[in-house]
Design a protein around this nucleic acid. Sequence first.
RNA 1: GCGUCGGUGGUAGAGUGGUCAAUUACAACAGACUGUAAAUCUGUCGCCUUAGGGCUACGAAGGUUCGAAUCCUUCCCGACGCA
Length: 273
Amino acid sequence: MSKPKIIVILGQTATGKSTLAVSIAKKLKGEIISADSRQVYKGLNIGTGKIDKKEMRGVLHHLLDVANPKSKFSVAEYQKQAIYVIAEIQKRGKFPIICGGTGFYIDAITKGIVFPEVPPNIKLRKELYSKSAIALFEYFKKMDPERAKNIDTKNKVRLVRAIEIAKYLGEVPRPKANPLPYQFIKIGLYLPPDKLKNKVEQRVKKMFKDGLLKEIEKLKRAGVSDKRLKEFGFEYNNPTPEKVIKETLKYAKRQMTWFKRDKEIKWFDASAL
RNA sequence: GCGUCGGUGGUAGAGUGGUCAAUUACAACAGACUGUAAAUCUGUCGCCUUAGGGCUACGAAGGUUCGAAUCCUUCCCGACGCA
Protein backbone atom coordinates (compact mmCIF):
# COMPACT_ATOMS: atom_id res chain seq x y z
CA MET A 1 0.00 0.00 0.00
CA SER A 2 1.61 3.20 -1.09
CA LYS A 3 1.30 6.40 0.83
CA PRO A 4 -0.54 9.36 -0.66
CA LYS A 5 1.76 11.71 -2.49
CA ILE A 6 2.24 15.37 -1.75
CA ILE A 7 4.22 17.69 -3.95
CA VAL A 8 6.43 20.21 -2.24
CA ILE A 9 7.69 23.17 -4.20
CA LEU A 10 10.47 25.02 -2.51
CA GLY A 11 13.49 27.12 -3.31
CA GLN A 12 14.89 30.57 -3.20
CA THR A 13 12.78 33.67 -3.26
CA ALA A 14 11.80 35.11 -6.64
CA THR A 15 12.25 31.87 -8.54
CA GLY A 16 8.61 31.53 -9.52
CA LYS A 17 7.48 28.90 -7.06
CA SER A 18 3.94 30.21 -6.77
CA THR A 19 3.38 30.27 -10.50
CA LEU A 20 4.63 26.73 -10.90
CA ALA A 21 2.52 25.56 -7.99
CA VAL A 22 -0.60 27.06 -9.54
CA SER A 23 -0.03 25.40 -12.90
CA ILE A 24 0.55 22.05 -11.27
CA ALA A 25 -2.55 22.53 -9.16
CA LYS A 26 -4.52 23.29 -12.29
CA LYS A 27 -3.43 20.05 -13.91
CA LEU A 28 -3.80 17.79 -10.91
CA LYS A 29 -6.89 19.30 -9.30
CA GLY A 30 -4.77 20.44 -6.46
CA GLU A 31 -4.91 22.91 -3.62
CA ILE A 32 -1.97 24.85 -2.36
CA ILE A 33 -0.65 25.05 1.16
CA SER A 34 1.65 28.00 1.60
CA ALA A 35 4.85 27.46 3.57
CA ASP A 36 5.86 30.99 4.27
CA SER A 37 6.41 32.31 7.75
CA ARG A 38 5.23 35.82 6.95
CA GLN A 39 2.46 35.26 4.51
CA VAL A 40 0.46 33.69 7.30
CA TYR A 41 -0.17 37.22 8.53
CA LYS A 42 -2.96 39.41 7.33
CA GLY A 43 -1.83 42.68 5.86
CA LEU A 44 1.66 41.57 4.93
CA ASN A 45 1.09 41.40 1.21
CA ILE A 46 3.41 43.49 -0.88
CA GLY A 47 6.50 43.06 1.27
CA THR A 48 6.15 39.31 1.41
CA GLY A 49 5.35 38.90 -2.25
CA LYS A 50 2.06 37.27 -1.44
CA ILE A 51 0.14 35.85 -4.35
CA ASP A 52 -2.98 37.79 -5.30
CA LYS A 53 -6.43 36.58 -6.33
CA LYS A 54 -5.74 36.90 -10.01
CA GLU A 55 -2.51 34.94 -9.84
CA MET A 56 -4.25 32.16 -7.95
CA ARG A 57 -6.30 31.45 -11.06
CA GLY A 58 -9.05 29.95 -9.00
CA VAL A 59 -6.80 27.53 -7.16
CA LEU A 60 -7.51 27.29 -3.45
CA HIS A 61 -4.67 28.57 -1.26
CA HIS A 62 -4.33 27.68 2.40
CA LEU A 63 -2.44 29.14 5.32
CA LEU A 64 -2.34 32.62 3.95
CA ASP A 65 -3.77 35.38 6.15
CA VAL A 66 -4.46 33.12 9.08
CA ALA A 67 -2.83 35.25 11.74
CA ASN A 68 -2.97 38.76 13.11
CA PRO A 69 0.32 40.59 12.64
CA LYS A 70 0.08 41.97 16.14
CA SER A 71 0.28 38.53 17.69
CA LYS A 72 2.91 35.92 17.09
CA PHE A 73 2.62 32.87 14.98
CA SER A 74 5.00 29.93 15.23
CA VAL A 75 6.25 26.86 13.43
CA ALA A 76 4.36 24.64 15.80
CA GLU A 77 1.16 26.48 15.09
CA TYR A 78 1.86 26.29 11.41
CA GLN A 79 2.50 22.58 11.60
CA LYS A 80 -0.77 21.90 13.37
CA GLN A 81 -2.82 23.83 10.88
CA ALA A 82 -0.97 22.41 7.90
CA ILE A 83 -1.50 18.84 8.99
CA TYR A 84 -5.17 19.54 9.43
CA VAL A 85 -5.48 21.25 6.07
CA ILE A 86 -3.69 18.45 4.26
CA ALA A 87 -6.08 15.92 5.71
CA GLU A 88 -9.02 18.05 4.65
CA ILE A 89 -7.76 18.34 1.10
CA GLN A 90 -7.18 14.63 1.00
CA LYS A 91 -10.75 14.02 2.16
CA ARG A 92 -12.11 16.21 -0.60
CA GLY A 93 -10.23 14.08 -3.07
CA LYS A 94 -7.95 16.92 -4.07
CA PHE A 95 -4.19 16.90 -4.42
CA PRO A 96 -2.16 18.81 -1.79
CA ILE A 97 0.73 20.94 -2.96
CA ILE A 98 2.98 22.63 -0.46
CA CYS A 99 4.69 25.74 -1.76
CA GLY A 100 7.00 28.11 -0.01
CA GLY A 101 10.46 29.23 0.92
CA THR A 102 10.57 28.84 4.66
CA GLY A 103 12.72 25.76 5.14
CA PHE A 104 11.87 25.32 8.76
CA TYR A 105 8.15 25.27 8.06
CA ILE A 106 8.59 22.78 5.26
CA ASP A 107 10.69 20.49 7.44
CA ALA A 108 8.14 20.75 10.22
CA ILE A 109 5.68 19.01 7.91
CA THR A 110 7.81 16.78 5.75
CA LYS A 111 9.99 15.51 8.59
CA GLY A 112 7.26 15.48 11.18
CA ILE A 113 9.31 17.33 13.75
CA VAL A 114 7.86 16.95 17.22
CA PHE A 115 7.89 20.24 19.06
CA PRO A 116 7.87 20.23 22.85
CA GLU A 117 4.47 21.22 24.19
CA VAL A 118 5.73 24.28 25.95
CA PRO A 119 3.95 27.49 25.11
CA PRO A 120 5.93 30.72 24.93
CA ASN A 121 6.24 32.47 28.24
CA ILE A 122 6.43 36.14 27.37
CA LYS A 123 7.23 37.29 30.87
CA LEU A 124 10.07 34.84 31.27
CA ARG A 125 11.45 35.70 27.86
CA LYS A 126 11.49 39.36 28.63
CA GLU A 127 13.32 38.75 31.85
CA LEU A 128 15.89 36.46 30.27
CA TYR A 129 16.55 38.81 27.41
CA SER A 130 17.96 41.41 29.73
CA LYS A 131 20.80 39.02 30.55
CA SER A 132 23.88 38.33 28.47
CA ALA A 133 24.25 35.22 26.35
CA ILE A 134 27.10 34.04 28.55
CA ALA A 135 25.00 34.35 31.67
CA LEU A 136 22.10 32.54 30.02
CA PHE A 137 24.36 29.74 28.93
CA GLU A 138 25.83 29.30 32.41
CA TYR A 139 22.34 29.23 33.84
CA PHE A 140 21.08 26.75 31.29
CA LYS A 141 24.07 24.44 31.65
CA LYS A 142 22.98 23.65 35.19
CA MET A 143 19.46 22.87 34.09
CA ASP A 144 20.25 20.59 31.19
CA PRO A 145 23.93 19.71 30.75
CA GLU A 146 23.23 17.33 27.89
CA ARG A 147 21.49 19.84 25.68
CA ALA A 148 24.00 22.49 26.72
CA LYS A 149 26.73 20.50 24.98
CA ASN A 150 25.50 21.38 21.53
CA ILE A 151 23.40 24.47 21.90
CA ASP A 152 24.43 27.70 20.21
CA THR A 153 26.13 29.31 23.17
CA LYS A 154 25.91 32.82 21.79
CA ASN A 155 22.41 32.70 20.41
CA LYS A 156 20.05 34.28 22.87
CA VAL A 157 16.93 33.28 21.00
CA ARG A 158 17.89 29.62 21.28
CA LEU A 159 19.07 29.87 24.85
CA VAL A 160 15.92 31.59 25.99
CA ARG A 161 13.69 29.00 24.39
CA ALA A 162 15.79 26.15 25.82
CA ILE A 163 15.51 27.61 29.30
CA GLU A 164 11.80 28.13 28.78
CA ILE A 165 11.38 24.46 27.96
CA ALA A 166 13.70 23.22 30.68
CA LYS A 167 11.82 25.22 33.30
CA TYR A 168 8.64 23.60 32.21
CA LEU A 169 9.75 20.05 31.58
CA GLY A 170 12.89 19.74 33.64
CA GLU A 171 15.03 19.33 30.57
CA VAL A 172 14.83 19.82 26.84
CA PRO A 173 13.50 16.70 25.14
CA ARG A 174 15.83 15.23 22.54
CA PRO A 175 14.84 15.95 18.94
CA LYS A 176 12.17 13.61 17.77
CA ALA A 177 10.38 13.01 14.53
CA ASN A 178 6.98 11.58 13.92
CA PRO A 179 6.76 11.29 10.13
CA LEU A 180 3.40 11.83 8.56
CA PRO A 181 1.91 9.06 6.43
CA TYR A 182 2.58 10.77 3.13
CA GLN A 183 5.20 10.56 0.46
CA PHE A 184 6.66 13.99 -0.18
CA ILE A 185 8.01 14.81 -3.58
CA LYS A 186 10.33 17.76 -3.18
CA ILE A 187 10.96 20.01 -6.09
CA GLY A 188 13.52 22.77 -5.69
CA LEU A 189 13.64 25.82 -7.93
CA TYR A 190 16.85 27.74 -8.35
CA LEU A 191 18.21 30.45 -10.61
CA PRO A 192 21.79 31.17 -11.64
CA PRO A 193 23.14 34.09 -9.57
CA ASP A 194 22.93 36.78 -12.26
CA LYS A 195 19.39 35.83 -13.19
CA LEU A 196 18.34 35.70 -9.59
CA LYS A 197 19.74 39.16 -9.06
CA ASN A 198 17.79 40.41 -12.03
CA LYS A 199 14.55 38.91 -10.84
CA VAL A 200 15.05 40.28 -7.36
CA GLU A 201 15.72 43.76 -8.69
CA GLN A 202 12.58 43.70 -10.77
CA ARG A 203 10.51 42.34 -7.95
CA VAL A 204 11.74 44.91 -5.46
CA LYS A 205 11.14 47.74 -7.88
CA LYS A 206 7.60 46.52 -8.30
CA MET A 207 7.18 46.21 -4.56
CA PHE A 208 7.86 49.90 -4.10
CA LYS A 209 5.72 50.82 -7.04
CA ASP A 210 2.86 48.77 -5.65
CA GLY A 211 3.03 50.69 -2.40
CA LEU A 212 5.22 48.90 0.10
CA LEU A 213 5.59 52.10 2.08
CA LYS A 214 1.84 52.53 2.21
CA GLU A 215 1.45 48.98 3.41
CA ILE A 216 3.85 49.68 6.26
CA GLU A 217 1.94 52.84 7.16
CA LYS A 218 -1.26 50.89 7.21
CA LEU A 219 0.19 48.28 9.54
CA LYS A 220 1.42 50.99 11.85
CA ARG A 221 -1.96 52.62 11.90
CA ALA A 222 -3.47 49.27 12.76
CA GLY A 223 -1.29 49.23 15.84
CA VAL A 224 1.66 47.10 14.76
CA SER A 225 4.71 48.28 16.70
CA ASP A 226 8.03 49.23 15.16
CA LYS A 227 9.65 46.38 17.01
CA ARG A 228 7.18 43.97 15.51
CA LEU A 229 7.76 45.39 12.06
CA LYS A 230 11.45 44.75 12.44
CA GLU A 231 10.73 41.13 13.16
CA PHE A 232 8.95 40.87 9.85
CA GLY A 233 12.23 41.38 8.10
CA PHE A 234 14.06 44.05 6.18
CA GLU A 235 11.15 44.92 3.88
CA TYR A 236 9.32 46.24 6.88
CA ASN A 237 12.23 47.94 8.59
CA ASN A 238 12.73 51.38 6.97
CA PRO A 239 13.23 49.89 3.54
CA THR A 240 14.95 51.44 0.59
CA PRO A 241 15.13 49.65 -2.75
CA GLU A 242 18.90 49.21 -2.50
CA LYS A 243 18.67 47.77 0.96
CA VAL A 244 15.85 45.40 0.14
CA ILE A 245 17.65 44.08 -2.93
CA LYS A 246 20.83 43.49 -1.00
CA GLU A 247 19.09 41.82 1.90
CA THR A 248 16.93 39.68 -0.33
CA LEU A 249 19.98 38.31 -2.06
CA LYS A 250 21.53 37.51 1.28
CA TYR A 251 18.34 35.86 2.38
CA ALA A 252 18.28 33.78 -0.77
CA LYS A 253 21.72 32.53 0.15
CA ARG A 254 20.60 31.58 3.62
CA GLN A 255 17.69 29.70 2.12
CA MET A 256 20.10 27.65 0.03
CA THR A 257 22.22 26.86 3.08
CA TRP A 258 19.15 25.32 4.57
CA PHE A 259 17.90 23.45 1.51
CA LYS A 260 21.31 22.10 0.55
CA ARG A 261 21.21 19.70 3.45
CA ASP A 262 18.11 17.99 2.17
CA LYS A 263 19.21 15.36 -0.30
CA GLU A 264 15.65 14.44 -1.24
CA ILE A 265 15.14 17.66 -3.14
CA LYS A 266 15.22 17.43 -6.91
CA TRP A 267 16.50 20.70 -8.31
CA PHE A 268 15.38 22.48 -11.44
CA ASP A 269 16.70 25.60 -13.10
CA ALA A 270 13.74 27.98 -13.00
CA SER A 271 14.93 29.95 -15.99
CA ALA A 272 14.31 26.87 -18.12
CA LEU A 273 10.66 26.69 -17.15
C1' G B 1 52.12 79.14 -7.39
C1' C B 2 51.81 79.36 -1.88
C1' G B 3 49.39 77.24 2.49
C1' U B 4 46.58 73.56 5.19
C1' C B 5 44.65 68.81 5.72
C1' G B 6 44.56 64.07 3.66
C1' G B 7 46.19 59.29 0.67
C1' U B 8 45.61 52.42 5.09
C1' G B 9 43.39 45.74 3.14
C1' G B 10 37.14 44.61 -1.83
C1' U B 11 34.76 49.44 0.32
C1' A B 12 34.14 52.85 4.45
C1' G B 13 37.13 54.07 8.31
C1' A B 14 40.50 53.41 13.12
C1' G B 15 45.53 53.23 14.30
C1' U B 16 50.18 58.05 14.67
C1' G B 17 57.52 54.52 16.82
C1' G B 18 57.58 48.19 19.04
C1' U B 19 52.38 43.80 21.70
C1' C B 20 50.09 45.53 13.66
C1' A B 21 48.69 41.29 8.65
C1' A B 22 46.81 46.06 11.12
C1' U B 23 40.27 47.86 15.98
C1' U B 24 35.57 48.17 13.76
C1' A B 25 31.60 48.23 10.14
C1' C B 26 29.95 46.73 5.45
C1' A B 27 30.61 43.51 1.40
C1' A B 28 32.33 38.41 0.19
C1' C B 29 32.61 33.07 1.35
C1' A B 30 31.21 28.94 4.41
C1' G B 31 28.03 27.10 8.26
C1' A B 32 24.26 26.36 12.33
C1' C B 33 19.16 26.08 13.10
C1' U B 34 13.58 21.30 16.72
C1' G B 35 7.36 26.56 19.13
C1' U B 36 10.30 34.30 17.01
C1' A B 37 13.12 31.20 11.19
C1' A B 38 13.15 36.93 5.48
C1' A B 39 14.15 35.90 12.54
C1' U B 40 18.47 34.56 15.42
C1' C B 41 23.45 33.01 15.65
C1' U B 42 28.72 31.12 14.31
C1' G B 43 33.35 30.75 11.53
C1' U B 44 36.82 32.45 7.62
C1' C B 45 38.19 36.81 5.33
C1' G B 46 46.69 39.65 2.10
C1' C B 47 49.59 35.36 -0.13
C1' C B 48 52.07 30.56 0.91
C1' U B 49 52.20 26.67 4.43
C1' U B 50 54.39 19.89 6.40
C1' A B 51 49.97 25.09 10.61
C1' G B 52 55.29 25.91 13.59
C1' G B 53 55.89 29.51 10.80
C1' G B 54 57.44 32.00 6.09
C1' C B 55 56.66 36.06 2.54
C1' U B 56 54.63 40.74 0.61
C1' A B 57 51.93 44.94 2.54
C1' C B 58 49.26 51.13 5.08
C1' G B 59 50.27 56.49 -2.41
C1' A B 60 55.97 56.23 -4.53
C1' A B 61 61.15 56.62 -3.66
C1' G B 62 64.79 57.55 -0.25
C1' G B 63 66.29 58.54 4.94
C1' U B 64 66.36 58.41 10.62
C1' U B 65 66.04 54.23 14.15
C1' C B 66 67.78 48.11 17.21
C1' G B 67 62.63 48.66 15.25
C1' A B 68 58.27 52.82 10.95
C1' A B 69 51.48 52.45 8.66
C1' U B 70 53.28 55.77 12.44
C1' C B 71 59.17 60.50 12.39
C1' C B 72 62.12 63.36 8.27
C1' U B 73 62.97 64.65 2.83
C1' U B 74 61.47 64.71 -2.16
C1' C B 75 57.90 63.31 -5.64
C1' C B 76 52.81 61.86 -7.29
C1' C B 77 47.47 62.28 -6.33
C1' G B 78 42.88 64.49 -3.79
C1' A B 79 40.03 68.22 -0.87
C1' C B 80 39.84 72.97 0.97
C1' G B 81 41.87 78.04 1.67
C1' C B 82 44.81 82.18 -0.35
C1' A B 83 46.36 83.96 -4.76
